[in-house]
Amino acid sequence: MFNNFFHRMASPKHFYRLAGILIPWLAVPCLLLTLAGLYYGLVKAPPDYQQGDSYRIMFIHVPAAWMSMFIYVVMAGAGAIGLIWRIKLAEMVAISSAPIGASFTFLALVTGSIWGKPMWGTWWVWDARLTSELILLFLYLGVIALNNAIDDKRMAARAVAILALVGVINIPIIHYSVEWWNTLHQGPTVTKFDKPSIHLSMLIPLLLMAVAFKLYYAFVVLMRARCEVLDRERNSGWVKELAEKT
């Protein structure tokens, strides 16, 4: 029965339909959590005694940075599953994750930079986290570029999976090397992102936003994977039927 379930799940047609049902069930809670997170983050949480209201950028920056790492790991995991068990769905999830991950990485970089301006007085500081995010963005762009460069969709998916796996082994190494480099060349400023303790009134919106971002990723990746299914199955009967109805 278990096997049967997976088999049906992995059939593109069932996936397409199931994803279509799931998307609103993920999107609505995501929206509600985002609104709650914004309310607690922008209205309820008191200003920081050091940074004033500027720290509120954290409620986007930190969850986005978490997501950027999380999505890369998911992408590599899905890619590995696709490579080993030849499950097309896993390949599609891996491919669909790349642009979303790149978006979150970009967001973490930009908000980090905007946050840095009032804190450090410059738009860019070679801070350990920002530098890691920058390299992560390059890794994502490499994945996307490789996917675009290969015309054959299945071949592209497998190439991307290998690249993502190589990347995921390297990410911790890059991360620690950058951190180490950062402590060696300690700049004039001390990082203000990492606080040893965080007050509950700030932790609540942070976690709300983090969960909202996770849900956001879940439904957007399903939306993208649905497009992948349509593209790959364009010659099958059910896709043609679907196309004629629209």
């Binding site: 004033g52 967001l107 905007i114």
Partner: peptide
């Protein structure tokens, strides 16, 4: 936003 309006709102806007 306690004088940080440009930074905070531009961050949220871009997001």
């Amino acid at each position: 936003m306690g004088g940080y309006a440009v930074y905070v709102w531009s961050s949220y806007g871009i997001a």
